[in-house]
Computed example of a mutant assay.
Amino acid sequence: MKEQFLLREDITFLNFGSFGASPKPIFEAYQRFQRELEYEPVQFIVNRGPEYLKESRIRLGEYVNCHPDDVVYVPNPTYGVNMVARALDLKPGDEVLSTNIEYGACDRTWDFYCAEKGANYVKQPIRLPLTSKEAFLADFWSGFSPKTKLVFLSQITSATGLILPVKEICEEAKRRGVPVFIDGAHVPGHLPLDLTALDVDFYTGACHKWMLTPKGSSFLFVKRDFQNALDPLVVSWGYQADFPSHSQFQDYHQFNGTRDFSAYLTIPEAIDFMKVNDWWSWAETNRKLVHTWLPRLCTLVGSAPLAPVTDEFIGQMGSIPVRCKDPFELKNLLYEEFRIEIPVMVQNGQSYVRFSINAFNDEQDLVKLEQALKELLSRGLIY
Rank of each mutant, 00 (worst) to 15 (best):
V64N: 04
N65E: 13
N65P: 04
C66W: 06
C66G: 05
H67T: 06
H67E: 14
D69A: 12
V71N: 04
V71W: 05
V71R: 02
V72A: 01
V74Q: 09
N76Q: 13
P77E: 08
T78R: 13
G80C: 04
V84A: 03
A87F: 08
A87K: 01
L90K: 05
K91S: 14
P92R: 11
D94I: 02
E95P: 03
V96Q: 01
T99G: 05
I101G: 02
I101H: 04
I101Y: 12
E102P: 05
Y103K: 11
Y103Q: 10
Y103R: 11
Y103L: 15
A105P: 09
D107S: 03
T109R: 08
T109Y: 13
D111F: 13
F112C: 06
A115D: 13
A115W: 09
G118T: 04
A119I: 09
N120K: 15
Y121S: 11
Y121T: 13
K123H: 06
R127D: 04
L130T: 00
T131W: 05
E134S: 03
A135F: 08
A135H: 11
A135M: 10
F136C: 00
F136D: 00
F136L: 02
A138T: 06
A138Q: 07
D139M: 10
W141R: 00
W141C: 00
G143K: 01
F144Q: 00
S145L: 03
P146W: 06
T148G: 00
T148S: 00
K149N: 03
L150R: 01
V151D: 00
F152W: 01
L153Y: 11
S154T: 09
Q155C: 10
I156L: 13
I156F: 08
T157R: 02
S158L: 12
A159G: 05
A159T: 06
T160E: 14
T160W: 11
T160D: 11
G161R: 01
L164E: 02
P165G: 05
E168C: 07
E168H: 07
E168A: 14
E171K: 15
E172H: 08
R176H: 03
G177F: 06
G177R: 02
G177Y: 04
V178M: 08
V180L: 12
I182V: 15
D183K: 07
D183T: 08
G184Y: 12
A185Q: 13
A185V: 12
V187H: 06
G189T: 09
H190F: 14
H190M: 12
P192E: 14
